[in-house]
Design a protein around this nucleic acid. Structure first.
Lengths: 254, 254
DNA sequence: TTCATCAATTGGTAGGACCAATCAGTTTGC
DNA sequence: GCAAACTGATTGGTCCTACCAATTGATGAA
């Protein structure tokens, strides 16, 4: 026979078999770790190790305080994204930091063509109330600036952040809520401010304008989000906002 | 933040990151369960659970009596790195921007433990002339600060930049040349300046110190690089440097 | 009924103990 | 001198026991 398998592998196989033979069909809850341990005559640790392995493979769902549940057979091509699990807040905070710097970089050498294009995009965003077109324009606006930073790494990072934004369900939801809540005038004014700074080739102003844009986004999120973690979120957001207001003040008085 | 994750998930993520950022490359053996437990300040059980999950996913190979080994990244369709082809200069410029912001973030809530660790690392870098140990310490220094930003996206981005650094041959060469050229005193002083700012919980000073560190790196690159694209490189570097000197001046006078 | 409260259940983590496989260095036997 | 056998330190594997934390459902008050 095959080489000696570790005990937790054996247990893992037994559980898997009981799932596939219908003893524990998808959706059902299997016995508690303590009971399984006794039934298989192994320690609870071993049961846990087996279940955790099966969870990693997508066969089980372990819920603290509730129990362990059998999932539907995992779909073939899973394609796990390499992105970390993040909150909408973290993502926006990161964009605040990075895109502001990109704007400052872009101001140093942005081309007239890019400036024209940005102008068109701002108009589109102001005119269209169609979510689809407006969001598309918003995206191109930010990515154009990223490209004009003339730094492939900066551009790559910012594009990656946008990719994360579209791939993470939770993040999309929050953003949709925020967009519904904000006035087109606000967005428009902020984008125009960024554009104006770029036209003037003023890195500091460009950074400041972009920071302002994202800072408002962050604060909007506080109003929109109404989950359990609000306190924590609000605390972080306010701290972050305050930090940037202070920075901006120092810039201005400088 | 996302929902509370179980500890073994956190550990699992940390290990996965250390693998992907090059701390433990494929084929290498990672520290024993007992050592990892102590290092992460969790129990051995938790380490085991995390490693077993990663084994199930095909990232690790656990061999009884021998150790735990990192496997080649499981082929997930693409295989090729999504990294853009970049120059050492671009990469360092991006790090200047992003890591400075991360340092500012970290200053707001860095833990005493992290501060202690950073202190040790600075000492290691000062003492060791061994390239291996010193570089390792350098990386951990920067990645620790990234982690202390308490923003998973920021952390993810900076880790990605380090990954790019180790994976791109050309970048590595330039860095090696720069390292050979610089005095240990310079590096040490700069790192200590960053650390001091973090200890004082001073975001602005932290950002400034980190900018100073990377700005020197950028200028060093100019001296070292003597290739065809020097003119362009020099022009960009000088512009970038000037920009940050101006910024710093404005900060100070603010 | 509705909602706050509490206690039992269930998973999560810690720490200590001991077993079993492995491996490097040493000793032994030829 | 060299290979086989031994030895001990190291590392993963398993168990136990105790306690923490999230969940759930029963209980009782409004």
């Amino acid at each position: 026979m095959a080489k000696e398998k570790r005990l937790y592998h054996v247990v893992s196989d037994r559980i898997r078999r009981m799932i596939s033979d219908g003893t524990y069909p998808p959706g059902s809850r299997l016995p508690g770790e303590r009971e399984l341990a006794e039934r298989f005559d192994v320690s609870r640790v071993t049961i846990r190790e087996a279940e955790i392995a099966l969870q990693a493979l997508g066969h089980l769902s372990i819920r603290t305080g509730s129990g362990v549940y059998v999932l539907d057979p995992p779909r073939a091509g899973d394609g796990s994204l390499p992105f970390p699990s993040v909150s909408a807040f973290e993502l926006t905070e990161a964009r605040l930091l990075f895109e502001s710097e990109a704007a400052a970089l872009a101001a140093r050498a942005i081309t007239p063509e890019a400036l024209d294009r940005l102008g068109e995009l701002v108009e589109t965003m102001g005119a269209e109330h169609d979510d689809e077109a407006s969001q598309q324009a918003d995206r191109e606006f930010h990515l154009t600036i990223a490209a004009e930073s003339r730094n492939a790494v900066v551009q790559f990072v910012i594009e990656t952040l946008w990719k994360i934004r579209t791939e993470l369900q939770a993040v999309r939801e929050v953003h949709a809520a925020v967009c519904a809540n904000e006035t087109a005038a606000d967005r428009g004014a902020e984008h125009e401010e960024v554009l104006a700074a770029l036209r003037n080739r003023d890195p500091l102003a460009a950074r400041r304008a972009m920071q302002k844009h994202f800072t408002r986004l962050l604060t909007s999120m506080i109003d929109v989000t109404e989950e359990k973690a609000v306190e924590e979120l609000r605390r972080k957001a306010m701290a972050s906002r305050q930090r940037y207001l202070n920075d901006a003040a120092q810039h201005r008085t400088g």
